[in-house]
Simulated assay, not measured.
Amino acid sequence: MKAKVEESISYIRNLIGDFNPEIAIILGSGLGELAEEFKNKTKIKTEKIPNYPQPTVEGHAGNLVFGELNDVRVLGFQGRIHFYESGEIENVIYPVLVANELGVKILIVTNAAGGLNKNFKPGDLMVIADHINFMFLNPLLIFPQNLKRMNHPAYDDRLKKIAIETGIELGISIREGIYCGVRGPNYETPAEVEMLRKIGCDAVGMSTVPEVITANFLGMRVLGISCITNYAAGISKNKLSHEEVTAVASKVKNEFSLLIKEVIKKIKQIGI
């Protein structure tokens, strides 16, 4: 794995030179347009990067975008890799390993998620307070030496506070809740949704958890934001579809972009 990542980094460095991103953003389904707002950007197709796994799901373009956002050097991942696409956990966490090798210290991970909390509605943005790993996968098993236990919150408390306060200031419908990660690729049954609600989950999706575990292991500080794109099965009578997910994400992309840009601005001002 290390040799593969180093080969990827060598290719990337030939294109970006000594540009060192401070913050990386993994952009979930329908949320990738934020990277188009980067200034002085360099876009690299992931299919050109040696060893880099390819996203196959609609709404995940497959680009690494380097640039500046509110005078902060950033790396945007337009597209993520879900476990169900390949069945290889190494593919899922590969973007985090690349970001780490490039010197990234803060990871903002976003996703499109189904709403379990009946007080939430499609279009809400939810700051992830914590997660429940119902993927039953742990990427740390691929690191054979020097394993560390997570002895701090998975999601950074200061970053959560900044995101929530910023959302309120901007008048955005901002929530905070527990994200449950499942393997997919099927949507949850009504019975599964009811079970997840009873154990305290506010949103459910098919990503994020492995990336966050890996980022914590590597010493990054993490902020997680879910876009609630639909009510989960049993809460809504409508048939669930990926088209609905991407459509709702597209509708809130302006609020999402504004929130992320202002959060990054505050991170720089405070000097986290």
Rank of each mutant, 00 (worst) to 15 (best):
M1S: 14
M1K: 08
V5R: 05
I12C: 10
I16E: 06
N20R: 15
I23W: 06
I23G: 06
L27Y: 04
E33S: 15
A35D: 08
E36T: 09
F38T: 11
N40R: 11
N40H: 13
T42P: 09
K43H: 00
I44H: 11
K48P: 01
K48G: 03
P53C: 07
Q54R: 14
Q54I: 15
V57E: 11
E58A: 15
G59T: 05
G62C: 12
N63Y: 15
V65D: 07
F66L: 06
F66W: 04
L69W: 03
N70E: 15
D71W: 04
V74Q: 02
L75D: 02
G76R: 06
Q78T: 08
I81K: 00
H82N: 07
S86C: 11
E88M: 13
N91L: 09
I93V: 15
V96W: 05
V96K: 05
V96N: 05
V98Y: 04
L102P: 03
L102H: 07
K105N: 09
I106Y: 07
V109T: 14
V109M: 00
N111D: 03
L116V: 00
P122N: 01
M126R: 04
V127H: 05
V127L: 12
L137F: 02
P139M: 00
I142M: 15
I142N: 12
Q145E: 14
N146A: 14
N146G: 12
K148H: 01
N151C: 05
D157F: 13
K161T: 11
A163M: 02
A163P: 01
E165F: 06
G167P: 08
E169H: 06
E169F: 10
I172E: 09
I172Q: 01
I174R: 02
R175G: 02
G177P: 11
I178P: 05
I178M: 02
C180W: 00
G181N: 06
G181F: 04
V182G: 04
R183Q: 15
P185R: 08
P185W: 12
P190Q: 07
A191K: 10
A191P: 08
A191C: 11
E194S: 14
L196R: 07
K198Q: 14
C201F: 09
M206L: 08
S207K: 03
S207Y: 01
S207P: 06
A215H: 00
A215S: 05
A215E: 04
M220N: 03
R221N: 15
R221V: 09
G224Y: 07
C227A: 15
C227I: 12
C227F: 10
N230M: 06
A232M: 09
A233E: 03
A233G: 03
G234K: 08
I235P: 08
S241L: 10
S241T: 14
S241G: 12
H242P: 10
E243K: 13
E243T: 11
V248D: 08
V252E: 04
I260H: 00
E262S: 14
K265S: 08
K265D: 02
K266M: 12
I270Q: 07
G271R: 13
I272A: 13
